[in-house]
Design a protein around this nucleic acid. Structure first.
Lengths: 162, 162
DNA sequence: ACTTTTTTGTGTCCTTGTCAACAAAAAACA
DNA sequence: TGTTTTTTGTTGACAAGGACACAAAAAAGT
């Protein structure tokens, strides 16, 4: 495995472990709620006018899945939905008081996770961080472009089919 | 969002996009096989004596899930299983000829993905790569230790319960 | 040796998310 | 303006994977 591959492999491993560990800890404090529910609450809590589509895009999930999760969250009284007077199509979400309570707990947990891992960053220079962010941003832009190419292809394909 | 968080966020985004894009391309060439099946074939192809447990650990999945996937792969004639004369418990996998054909196709695709993304690495110095790998390794070790703490905790818990 | 614990693989049930199809609203277009 | 296309959210059928329980084998204790 060359170094290019190794960078990604190590980071991938890192994420898998972190996700597993965070979820484990999460289950201790928020056992009655599911990870996906908490993710949605987190995003709804810190974003203005979040809707099914935005949630789906941020979590790389289908609208279908998000629609079901938010439905449950409404049934549980953790979020509620509202619309704007000039738009009868889009449905937005906001936290209820109960939802906000969970948001706070999650926030606290998030701080704990940062604390748990802060030693890792201790001897990392600002320069190194910038270098890594720069690399990842570059890679992201590259992938955006590649995905965009597909979009163009798809449209031209469907154009051909007409 | 501070830089510590940003590093992880950018990489997370990167992975989501890459996985999505790779899977999209994969479906074009290997549409009759599922991503998880191909992953297993890939690992079995390049590892000696792979079994359910090893596959589960590498993919951060349950043995249950892997057991089902490999069962299907055997039914489809892409892999077959064997045992060692001195161990009647562990069951190992290897690729059949047909499985190896898919392995080759996957390998070629993998090269294509590397080629697609090689521009991203073009102006990244060896030093930068080392720095990133070093960081991720450090983070991995830290998480390993944290997970290990849980293991110890779990054992002491179950000890308490006896 | 023999008893207990751990490892390994599997089957069943259940949850979660995707896919495809859909209706309603909005946006684009002519 | 009226018509077509796109966006948005929802539903039902389905598939993938996890949780749990289990049996068989191996490893560890004693």
């Amino acid at each position: 495995m060359n170094k290019e591959e190794q960078v990604l492999a190590e980071f991938w491993d890192l994420f898998n472990k972190k996700i597993w560990l965070d979820a484990y800890k999460m289950k201790e404090s928020l056992k009655e709620y599911k990870p996906s529910e908490i993710h949605c609450i987190e995003y709804i809590g810190k974003s203005e006018d979040s809707n099914v589509t935005k949630l789906a895009e941020t979590f790389y999930m289908t609208r279908s899945a998000i629609s079901k999760i938010t439905k449950k969250l409404i049934e549980k009284g953790l979020i509620d939905s509202y619309q704007k007077p000039d738009n009868k199509k889009e449905i937005y979400f906001r936290l209820t008081e109960q939802g906000n309570a969970i948001y706070k707990v999650h926030e606290k947990l998030h701080k704990e996770f940062q604390d748990r891992d802060k030693a890792v960053f201790e001897h990392i220079s600002e320069k190194q961080l910038d270098s890594m962010i720069g690399f990842a941003e570059k890679y992201n832009k590259h992938l955006d472009a590649e995905i965009n190419k597909l979009g163009v292809d798809l449209k031209s394909e469907s154009f051909d089919k007409l």
